[in-house]
Design a protein around this nucleic acid. Structure first.
Lengths: 179, 179
DNA sequence: CACATACTTCACAAATGTGTGAAAGATGTG
DNA sequence: CACATCTTTCACACATTTGTGAAGTATGTG
């Protein structure tokens, strides 16, 4: 009962989150698998787990994990003496990796703009606009790279802040009488 | 001859750049229109200009500019006494705007992650991962917003550097004898 | 006010993408 | 070494997306 409810809540979330991932260009099934692996409580999944958990065919999982592994968003592991691969979502820097793939796209943008400047000529209005575009993309890439490097420290800082906050809250509850 | 060649070069670039835009989630035709408006030398286009320039049907342009205008990447203007709208690519902060739409996506991500924490509970492993995801997205949004605010100044700085560089180069050519 | 021009809307044909079932391929077990 | 289990590959049906032609709408012109 409650277990089924939980599962529905989870699957509903999966669809919601996957939708946003899809709007960022990820195909539907990989998006679902990523969202599921992120939100469900296990930290390693066999292909069968994912297929059953999402209630889709194993074939669909096969294609989805192939993409996710190639993007480094999942990694494949093998437990000795077992016949299934295990897919693990390395959440320590999942989002850094995700942004890594975005940075690669940004670089492709930059290259395209630069080649446009080259073939069209920087003196013409169109070429000038492309040069400015290229500069912007370069700037953005520098900024993102720097931000990404700051993230691990920032994450720990935020996690510590959250922990302090919640321990203050629990300390207040049992002993907080002398207001 | 040369004019046709130029046009081919332009259209080839348009396709190349549009391809990257498409990988970032933009539909093909809007991507082409944006790339064309960016790279061609005019600074305002009627729908007909775009249709002829890209050699596609006016109907396709209609849908494409609707999207681009809604994203604020093109703006629609109307010259008095004429019967066509003019589409202008406001390149002064085109890319800031483009990133603005990306920021909106980021915000949707953040909301989705936050709602996941809410419905799944922050104490479970899945919920904890989602909380970290939400934090990362918030961080990224702050960083991007800050970077975007820095861009105008940075752009002028880079433009000035380029101008100084090129004037130094032209000054060196005619008079640069006493090396 | 009929007409010409430019654009938009709509229905459709073509292309593309997506997930399934069936068959084939691995890999460990008795 | 036959078998059981799990995964991958492949062909296909289904759905979605895309851009076109044709018809309709708006707007300025004679």
């Amino acid at each position: 009962m409650t277990e089924d409810d939980d599962r529905m809540v989870l699957l509903r979330f999966v669809e919601r989150f996957a939708l946003v991932l899809r709007e960022s260009g990820m195909p539907p099934m990989p998006a679902r698998v990523l969202a599921y692996a992120l939100a469900d409580d296990a930290d390693r999944y066999t292909a069968g787990d994912l297929a059953r958990g999402l209630d889709v065919s194993p074939a669909a999982i096969s294609g989805a994990v192939r993409l996710l592994v190639s993007l480094r968003l999942l990694s494949r592991e093998r437990e000795p003496g077992t016949r299934s691969d295990l897919y693990v979502l390395d959440d320590r820097d999942l989002w850094s990796r995700f942004m890594g793939t975005e940075l690669a796209t940004l670089e492709r943008f930059e290259e395209a703009a630069a080649s446009g400047v080259e073939v069209l000529g920087a003196h013409r209005p169109g070429g000038r606009r492309l040069a400015e575009t290229r500069d912007f993309l370069a700037f953005l890439r520098e900024e993102l790279t720097a931000a990404l490097a700051r993230w691990p420290a920032e994450r720990d800082r935020r996690a510590a802040a959250r922990a302090a906050e919640s321990s203050r809250a629990t300390a207040r509850r049992p002993a907080g009488q002398k207001g």
